[in-house]
Nucleic acid binder design. Sequence first.
DNA 1: ATTCGTTATGTTTATCAAAACATAACGCTA
DNA 2: TAGCGTTATGTTTTGATAAACATAACGAAT
Lengths: 113, 113
Amino acid sequence: MPEIKIENRIWIEKNGFPFIGNGRVTLLEYIHETGSMTKAAKKIGMSYKKAWELVKSMNAQASEPLVIKEAGGKNGGGTQLTQEGLRVITEFRKLEEKSKSFLVEEFEKCCIN
Amino acid sequence: MPEIKIENRIWIEKNGFPFIGNGRVTLLEYIHETGSMTKAAKKIGMSYKKAWELVKSMNAQASEPLVIKEAGGKNGGGTQLTQEGLRVITEFRKLEEKSKSFLVEEFEKCCIN
DNA sequence: ATTCGTTATGTTTATCAAAACATAACGCTA
DNA sequence: TAGCGTTATGTTTTGATAAACATAACGAAT
């Protein structure tokens, strides 16, 4: 029996440029978990450079920084999420979940198969 | 003042493979408008081969054909949508619209900026 | 001063999807 | 039979994106 399902992606743009989306939020989550961009990128399987560019983009667009980075010092430095960064994760994941369950309900009503 | 907005994409998968999405439905719409895969592809700015592959994929996965193609004959042939094809367009566009407006409402509640 | 593990950035290479190109087949018409 | 505009399909080329590689800078600790 064929498995049919509906999927969706949501993202936030600022001035037409990508600001917050699933990939970026996942990166934030791993940074929060590891305290390091290097470790987070490795866990995700993303190049450090890519992760750095994404974080740079998010911080530049946000009204206040989402992450704070330190190069050098004890343990070489590291990266921490701000309160705002944590809030963005929560809010975005909630939005994702709500829109997905709404969509699934609607999809069950209409019959495409 | 920075313009912030939320976007979304929805699509339907069958057995894990893409079945119906915005690009495919747009193609169906242009085929309906022009009566020809060649003309539809040209209008969209898509290669004929790509359009042909998408149509092949959709027809193969759907429970009944979405388009009917004829090669040769008067005017060289052409491609027509079936009733099911037309229905899929309508249903999908409705789903898109509903999920988008739901999402926009939810986004206005949460304050990411 | 040296070491260490980070962040910071530029340069090169690889990957892969899309486009471009090339032909064949089809079937009506003249 | 030749011509036409279409569908059908394989092959080659391109282009955009990500990965890989290479190096520098940073700052605390020893």
